[in-house]
Design a binder for these strands. Sequence first.
DNA 1: CTCGGTCGTCGAAGCGCTTCGACGACCGAG
DNA 2: CTCGGTCGTCGAAGCGCTTCGACGACCGAG
Lengths: 341, 341
Amino acid sequence: MTGRSPGEQVTIADVARHAGVAASTVSYVLSGKRTISATTRGRVLASVRALGYHPHAGARALASRKANVIALVLPLRTGMQVPVVMRFATAVVTTARRYDHDVLLVTADEGPAGLHRIAGSALVDGVLLMDVELEDSRVPLLRELALPGVLIGHPADSTGLACVDLDFRRAGELCVEHLAAAGHRRIALLGAPAAVYDRGTGFAHRTRAGVRAAAGRLGVDAVTRPCEEGPAAVRHDLEALLADHPDVTGLVVQNESAVGPVLATLPLLGRRVPRDMSVVAICPDELAEQSGLTGVPVPAEEVGRQAVALLMRRLSGESVPEVTLLEPHLTVRDTSAGTGR
Amino acid sequence: MTGRSPGEQVTIADVARHAGVAASTVSYVLSGKRTISATTRGRVLASVRALGYHPHAGARALASRKANVIALVLPLRTGMQVPVVMRFATAVVTTARRYDHDVLLVTADEGPAGLHRIAGSALVDGVLLMDVELEDSRVPLLRELALPGVLIGHPADSTGLACVDLDFRRAGELCVEHLAAAGHRRIALLGAPAAVYDRGTGFAHRTRAGVRAAAGRLGVDAVTRPCEEGPAAVRHDLEALLADHPDVTGLVVQNESAVGPVLATLPLLGRRVPRDMSVVAICPDELAEQSGLTGVPVPAEEVGRQAVALLMRRLSGESVPEVTLLEPHLTVRDTSAGTGR
DNA sequence: CTCGGTCGTCGAAGCGCTTCGACGACCGAG
DNA sequence: CTCGGTCGTCGAAGCGCTTCGACGACCGAG
């Protein structure tokens, strides 16, 4: 250990002195931007370790014109799929660290001003925008600011941007195809809260479109309904659905908070799962697994990793595809079965 | 708008030129550290607005020796109360912005090295440590690094640190007092997953201690059990509990993911709520509200705000109390009642 | 009317890094 | 043996800010 008191900044000059080289040489050893002899490199790295040197982030950002920080913009609104968001955030942080970047957490309360500030102050090199709506006001702003960004979810117009998402349309189709193949002829989608559709959130709309398209193609009746959060609300919405459409035998659920209550309520309404009612969910994997649900997992980690990887490619000047859709997969578990016919 | 292309950094020199003053004057207008005449101030602020100036974060950090960024360290482990974490994180970001600080998201995967790096690189001025365990390895590290920090949750030894938490011991007592006052003589605590107790997480241990203390004081029988996550696991643990202790009439639940399944399962086991079984939960408020649960809400926002406020006071050199416990409050709703005796 | 003090502003220095140009040392080709 | 080229290293400049000391201008007290 060194004699300096903790909290004292160890500078590149200290390392240079300790290793007996110029500061620029230390910099080149650390960045690898010029060839340095093995002996010198070894000596410098030893000094770095001995002194516990970490480059001053601000100084580095100032001199190199990049912050090595990306922003993660979370809206955190009602109807958000909270655990998905958390797993996603973790994947983002972990992946970003692998690229030697840190993650700044930005919430939407600050609104567009937040993006302006962050871009103007060079606090971050790029942004990850979560929970993008079909018509999202932040999207044109991003274009205008010329701030490299990657969107999670995809807006109606993705020109000049990069977005990553599960292919929710295909996920909706998959669920219907699975139920239709099992003989179900009347199915229902119990979806996100109405507010989510009203906001024009992409995943909800696309899933619904996929369900309808597959139903049309396969000659299956499909009704689609939003579903509010909370056990009581779910029970109510489910009862209303079954009252209006008593002959439904296949249920697609895309609402994290509804999964548990739906499974708990169906038996009370005289529908055993999967004997009288097959249930397929589009939800985080651990939730599906806990309840033995057939369904399409939302691959939060994978989306997070891909989003960061795309952003890093943009930051290094590569061009990236406008839309990256992850292929959904359906896992069959205990809650779906044939109609018995 | 100016003619400069977007993404070009507007500097303090640009503002100074535009306003016809020295750069240092602009700085003093913005920081308020020296008196500036109203006319000059007005001219400078107009130029700032006209040019869309935002100080370069790195340059500011380098010159002023503070980053105006705090780190939020989230462990993100099993048994975490995810929605609570999200609401907490939002409150932290919002409050930090109020103090003109941003929030860097750090996960625990990086371990102690992450704290070292963040401290050494002057990326942040201080840290908020979430989900602190009774014997947390990050706590002595924080002391050693002399990095100002505030803990959420409180460790066994909090010397020289600042921590904020709901008074979980008191929360446990409140629940028991409520049930005892309603005439219940045999009660049970269905707690966090066993792993959480094994890690020595403070909130779980303190709640259990509170439940036991109040039970002892009031002459009530109390059994306490961990409870795993997932509907099937919850059902199993609840059935086992009631099989071993069939005469329990009051249940304290401290496990976010168990609340729904417990309420769904009790009727199936022949216990109507609240007629045969009173249920009191220690959980996020919206969850309790959705299910009409009597319980003690975990005030995530309030904890987040307090934590940031404390950290800011530490950053400005004030001394702060070692332990800040928030007083819990019990809200009576539909799931608790008297024993009928 | 003079003079010390406050007010308002300026210029220079310095924060810790990266990057550019320069320049010995050394090598191999001729 | 000479000389152009590459390799490895250095020093200086500059990134955009804050902060310190200096210094006119102006004021009011005497």
